[in-house]
Amino acid sequence: MSFIYQSVYEVQEFTLLSFRAVTNLFRKPRYLQDTLQQMDIIGVGSLVIIVLTGFFTGAVLALQSANSLKAFGAVNLTGQLVSLSLIKELGPVLTALMLAGRVGSGIASELGSMVVTEQISAMRALGTDPTKKLVTPRMIATTTMAPLLTVMADLFGLVGGWIVSFYALRLNTELFWTTAIRSLDYNYALEGLIKPIVFGFIVGMVGCYFGLRTTGGTQGVGRSTTQAVVTASILVIVADFFLTKIVLELRP
């Protein structure tokens, strides 16, 4: 029973914090400097791992799908399969999972250390609302950077897929790119952008939430960090399912 109570309580607290973070957008003071700094740390800082993730995902997709498509004599469609799986699913989800690991944990451990060293209390005592100075900038940064990073992952994924198709599978370059691009329509692109926006929000807010509710010294910081990564990853995958379902329902 206390487990249920605890879960409901946590969901409520998380929702309240998210609500505050969003409404802070319309309230002064706004910390532009902190927001830009977070965008830099989160966006530019994650670029390399995202590019690598995207590249090799695209490459392995090409290998696997060519193998399966061969059975139907449809190897020509490799480009299309790679681009669809990447842009609709794997690009957004893998980017979000990498961000949960790198950025979610970073946010949780940074805010967690600030809690246990009383820096958050000091901030409040000096008249700052930590949700404005710490949470909202991180939320903005993850929500805006996730879609951009996803686009990078998609792009390098396609390049990876093409390289495999060309050098390993001996597929025609032009064929690869025309099928890859022809299969993209407006709806897919939209799906591929809405997902990372939601995922980015989840990663940022979960990191902030677990960071800020840290208790119990250095050990507590470690615990919060782990919880943030695990929770963010699971939420991303669950949200992916529901978003896909919604998009499929809405599609004419």
Binding site: E118, S121, A122, R124, A125, L126, G127
Partner: peptide, 30 residues
């Protein structure tokens, strides 16, 4: 809180900011 200055037990300095920015924090906030 504007009327109050608080010296925390362990200092609670912002470790991402320099000494100058720590001390200037309240001025910038105001």
């Amino acid at each position: 809180r504007r009327k109050i200055g608080f010296v925390f037990q362990e200092g609670a300095l912002f470790d991402s900011l320099s000494v100058k920015e720590n001390v200037a924090y309240r001025l910038r906030e105001n």
